[in-house]
Design a protein around this nucleic acid. Sequence first.
DNA 1: TTTCAAACTAAAGATAAACTTTAGTAATGT
DNA 2: ACATTACTAAAGTTTATCTTTAGTTTGAAA
Lengths: 312, 312
Amino acid sequence: MSVTTHLKSLQALEMAIREGSLKAVADRLGITPAAVGQRVRSLEDYLGTDLLLRGRSGLKPTAELEHSLKDLHMAFAALVRVTESLDFQRVSEIHIVADPDWAELWLAPRIDGFREEHPHIQFCINGAGDVPVRLGTPDIRIGFSDAQDEPLFSDLLVPVTGPDNVRRIADWDPVMQMEGLPLLHLQAQRDDDDCPGWVEWFQTFGHRKTGPDRGVHYKHTRLALEAVRENVGFLVCGLSLVLRDYESGSIVIPFPVSQHLKAPHPYRLKVRPDSEKRPQVQRFVAWLRNAAGDTRRQIEELAAQSDTDQTG
Amino acid sequence: MSVTTHLKSLQALEMAIREGSLKAVADRLGITPAAVGQRVRSLEDYLGTDLLLRGRSGLKPTAELEHSLKDLHMAFAALVRVTESLDFQRVSEIHIVADPDWAELWLAPRIDGFREEHPHIQFCINGAGDVPVRLGTPDIRIGFSDAQDEPLFSDLLVPVTGPDNVRRIADWDPVMQMEGLPLLHLQAQRDDDDCPGWVEWFQTFGHRKTGPDRGVHYKHTRLALEAVRENVGFLVCGLSLVLRDYESGSIVIPFPVSQHLKAPHPYRLKVRPDSEKRPQVQRFVAWLRNAAGDTRRQIEELAAQSDTDQTG
DNA sequence: TTTCAAACTAAAGATAAACTTTAGTAATGT
DNA sequence: ACATTACTAAAGTTTATCTTTAGTTTGAAA
């Protein structure tokens, strides 16, 4: 019996007939329409027959293909069943312990992308998630741990505020702009010597001389940011934790990013040696490195932009 | 509905279970066993589960895969039906008119390789072949036609003889080696001014002074070469037409190939403009150019070798 | 009719997948 | 013990595939 070649072409063909347009297929496959066209053409060239009538409204199979359509659809339906069945059987848990702020504000909004691709991987992050806690050490730890652990990215601490506050700021005295403004703080900024806040920021960049430690103290950055979004006041906070809010405009960075404090430690990743071998963990770590790389790049970009561009 | 990835892996997997060994799959697919192993592993890594139990005697599916086996086999059986059905429908004829010697001695032994890959393409070469002649001009002409046609390769005319004759030749007078030898000729070498033979060869390279036009005259090179193979005598003949015989040793080139006459014209290819668009014709022409390129290279190599290496 | 937008195509270059090679391991038979 | 067979690992190379950019075609709207 002969062996089927051009599997990808056949798949593209089958989908094209079901979807009715190459563009739709391209979207489903996550490639460009040109690539889909090439897949189909490659098979047509190989066979020396047209298979797809690229008509004005939609696509139709040619007579040659018509005979095979049933088998074609059947084959790929069966393959979908196979992969889905195999997919469901590979359920696997990943247990993570991470800095709570980072987990809530950086990881949580990003992890959905990973989970879509890997619906079979279940998470337990800081005790919560798809699966209950497990005894023993977690598969992955992220925080400000040993200097020998792999760094993910180094954060910059910048003032942030709500979108309404920034409209007012323009009117203020440019030298003492923030005198008397409502400041928000994190408890760690008061309790932890390693966690710079408004006190250090005003020391470095000025803008205010009095009461740099006055104002509400929040335990979790998430709650502080919620207040910020509602224009309650100004907070010094890790840039990485507000990138999405900043992009959507729900949070504003009122000063050039060049006016930042460097976080004393980078976020660091530690994978339990035992877990390192599991392909699911490997995949997640690869994804994590990648996403962290994106964030690093975004931070660098913002810092670089603000050197020249003085809008805030 | 999700889309199936790792199609080639699934195919390899399916075949592995049917065939019982990766090596067997490799042979069927025309790749190395290592490649098959990688295909399967790539899917296993992606899923994070083992799928194939590589046992001492043969391969077995794991429990995970067991559930999907039926669909898996069904899917690829259906795809084989699809491709075979599409294959059979693409029957197509290519009509060729070519120099008879070239068709018999160069094209015929090479075309099988093409036909294996394209069993659906049927040929009519100089009126004979899979399909009967057709009215009108052929799709492809090959011969010594207009100088504007695409050249395939230029031949060299060299003396050839049978394997037994060459053993004797060593004893002969090196200056007049071939005096009195049985010479074979082609009718064209006598009738056609453009077709050099023994007369011109002895004029150029010596080795004999008398009776260069004596001996049997053959109409077709094929028949002359059959005589040569049976050590009937010596013939001047296109190198391209005896390459295979030369390689197998059934025909011998008794002098260095540097002692050759250049064929006055290259073999030229002309494709009917109309036919040029047909993908089957395109594929055949592409194959032809490629095979001609191989021959050109082989000829050049032999000519170059003989400059330094004086064994004949 | 002209103009525009959407979908597809062509060609080239860039990227990523797939394959081969070489070397090595483990099991099986001589 | 030794050779043989089948598989595996890792590296490097080749090939396939994809993206990009620009251009064509089609069908609808102005």
